[in-house]
Amino acid sequence: MRIVVCIKEVSSRESRYEVASDEAWINEANISFEINECDEYALEEGLKLKEHFGGEVVVLSVGDPRAEKVMRKALAMGADRGILIADERRQLTSPHLLGKVMSSALKDEEFDLVLTGTQSDDLSYAQTAVVLAELLSIPHATIIMKIEAEPEAKRLRALREMESGRFQWLELPLPALLSIQAGSSPVRYASLKGIMQARKKEIRTLKPEELGVEATAVPELEVVRLYQKKEERKAELLEGETGAIVEQLVEKLQKEAKVL
C-alpha cells in the first residue's frame, strides 16, 4: 500500500502562550514544536499497515521550513520519505488553501490511503482532512480508532468513534482518506538505527506557487485577533503553601459548598 500521512508541526503541549505583537499569532520566540498529537497516531496506523502489507509511507506537511525537524522524526519512526510544502509567508493557514496545496502535491502520487489527524492542536479547525478528501474526490471517514484494510480487494473497514462511547464500522473503497483519533494504538519510539537512517531519507520541498497558490491568494478564514480572557476564570484560586491551601479547600468544601 502507498500511504500518505499528513503531519503538522504545532507548538508543544507545555507551551506558555503569549500573543505576538500583530495580535494574530503567538510569539514563537520561546516555543518548542512537536508533531500534532493525533497526527502521530495517524503515522503509527500508517506504519502498521506498511509492516503488514508492504509498500511505502510518505509524510506530507505544510508549514514553516522548520517543520523539517518533525518530519525527520517521522522518518526516524519509519516513514520512507517526506514532502514539505514550505509556507514562508505564513499564508497557508486556512483549510481551503491547505487543501489546495496538499491535493496538488498529491496529484501524481498514486496513493491508496491518506491518513490525517482529527484536529490540529493550534488552529483546531477539525476540517482540513475532510476538505482534502473532497478536493481529492475520494471518500473519507473521520475520528477513526481502528483500521482493517484489504488492499487486494481495494477496500477497508474503519471503526469510527461516535458520541457517548459508541463506535460504528464503516466500509470504504480505496483510495480513501481517514482522520485518526488520538489514542487509537500506542505510538512507537524512533530507534537509534531509525534516527541514523532518517538523515539519508529524502524530503522534497515544494513552494505554494508550484502548487497553484500565488502570493496574492487570500485564505478564506483569517484570525484577526488572538487573546486571553482572564475574566473568564470562574474558580476561586487557592495558591501558596500546600498545607494551608489544602486546609482552606477542605473548609470551603464543608462550609461553603457543603459537599463533604
Binding site: L237, T242, I245, V246, L249, V250, K252
Partner: peptide, 29 residues
C-alpha cells in the same frame, strides 16, 4: 498551569503540583 481552561469551569482551583497536593489533601480528609 494557571491558564488551564479547567479553572474556567471549576468552583475552586488549587494551583500546584498534584504530586504534592493530592497526598496532603488525602491526609487532611
Amino acid at each position: 498551569d494557571r491558564n488551564a481552561p479547567i479553572f474556567n469551569v471549576a468552583t475552586y482551583g488549587i494551583l500546584g503540583d498534584l504530586q504534592e497536593i493530592v497526598p496532603a489533601l488525602t491526609k487532611k480528609l
